[in-house]
Write a protein that binds this DNA or RNA. Structure first.
Lengths: 116, 116
DNA sequence: GAAGTATGTTGCAAATATACGACATAATAT
DNA sequence: ATATTATGTCGTATATTTGCAACATACTTC
């Protein structure tokens, strides 16, 4: 029954929610930061740098790959992961537009006064 | 056992993941957009505008309120919700910094070529 | 005070997410 | 060929999320 009503929302809302969900775990945030910091796309070394089992890290990688935020290239025995910067830029614009819209509102006062 | 290793990540990573989780459902994205569009902070009218039961909407509202992204002020019989634009601006900066870091990397080629 | 209305809370069922060990697969090396 | 190494997949246990109906609370109105 869960997630049944997803189709009732805007495509934009669903897209933003999908990406937000991908970033909704510190491990996945850490993976993206790791891939960004090392210009060389490391592989299973990612698992070594995270406080999680190799299996769990692999799952997180698959989740990011499913959204095409990262890409993996098989290089013999190892797999090279790297960021899809093009898509990340599009996602950035999506978030930026959302936040501009959200912060443009006059809204509440400093404490919790609501000028209804 | 789940979420046990959260403490092992950076405070910044956890913060970003927390907020991302809040945006990880189209209903919550829709709520924020709704509050942004109406300068007056509506109350239970939010539930009427969403394709979900009043109970479920209330839960989503509580989730956003728990992170202080929105605030509620009791006005007699109704409750007025409004955006915490100050916090939203901080969150925006958090995301902006993250995306700048992520998109700055040279990374992959257009297809899936990985220059390892 | 009784009736009505607007909200929040509780309890429950189903779906998802998190985490990991054990196994499967594929490529390199001996 | 066999052993080793790097990854991914499967199965499983637990925790969390989602969604709603039913109940509780609080304020207004009559």
């Amino acid at each position: 029954m869960t997630y049944a009503k997803t189709a009732a929302f805007t495509e934009e809302q669903q897209q933003l929610a999908r990406v937000a969900k991908a970033l909704a775990h510190p491990a996945r945030v850490a993976i993206i930061q790791l891939l960004a910091s090392k210009q060389t796309c490391i592989s299973g070394d990612i698992a070594a740098e995270l406080p999680l089992s190799r299996t769990t890290v692999s799952q997180h990688l698959q989740e990011l790959k499913a959204l095409d935020l990262i890409r993996g290239e098989i290089d013999g025995l190892t797999v090279c992961y790297c960021l899809n910067t093009e898509l990340l830029q599009q996602v950035q614009q999506l978030f930026t537009a959302f936040f501009i819209e959200a912060t443009a509102s006059p809204a509440c006062g400093p404490a919790d006064a609501c000028s209804c």
